[in-house]
Design a protein around this nucleic acid. Sequence first.
DNA 1: CTCCAGTACTTTATCTGTTACAGTACTGAA
DNA 2: TTCAGTACTGTAACAGATAAAGTACTGGAG
Lengths: 126, 126
Amino acid sequence: MPEKSDSDTFPASDAFAADLLRGHTDTIVMAVLSQGESYGFEIFKTIRMATGGDHEIKEATLYAAYRRLERDGLVESYWGDETQGGRRKYYRITDAGRAVFRGNVAAWITTRRIIDALLDVKDTTP
Amino acid sequence: MPEKSDSDTFPASDAFAADLLRGHTDTIVMAVLSQGESYGFEIFKTIRMATGGDHEIKEATLYAAYRRLERDGLVESYWGDETQGGRRKYYRITDAGRAVFRGNVAAWITTRRIIDALLDVKDTTP
DNA sequence: CTCCAGTACTTTATCTGTTACAGTACTGAA
DNA sequence: TTCAGTACTGTAACAGATAAAGTACTGGAG
């Protein structure tokens, strides 16, 4: 008889992909921006490449994050002076942003440990 | 002049603790139940101990998770026959639950890798 | 020349998990 | 008797994620 994998019978990640990165979006955007200035769509492409298509963060989610981060003074923005093509809004991380980013990375490491312990996940580093 | 730490000036984890575990609650509950049957409040205490007070998952969050898991057939419940004290609702993970749990742990490992890469977090294992 | 895919940004409505808060009910210790 | 702890439930509200749709430009394929 035909084999059925667990994931066929019990899809786990359909609705999950969303919530697994939830709460990390702002931190991820700040991580990209600590490497240097960038504009909205480029940040989107950078993250899409890093997540490899799967688990991708949607455009609308990111643009919402940009607004949130700017509202909280963690990033600053300015319009580029593109003469042709779509106008681009560039983002730059602020000092406050850098500080919060450092805190969030620390929080991630803590959270990571807690979940690893709860799920009894062994170290996966080769 | 008095020192001010980053966390004083820019509180990072006030609203975050909530969202960092978000999406993992169901998986964490199933992790506890794969160790054996348990009842609602006990699962709460187990998780509270593991998270060490910080980052704790609130009672209401867990009871919501129990209902969700039971609705989806991932856990089963029955009332204990306590003769005194509060009545206890016991939970048991189902085969479907075990399968989804395995998938979620795999998803967690993937997500973990992605976030580590994006945040450029090095391996923290001693 | 037209159509389409890609770039680039925006807005609105909706969904879901989390939580504050409140309530019920029992027990044992101060 | 009061309070802390055990044990469960329900409701309202919030915030982040996203589907969906729209605007506007560019370059290539047919």
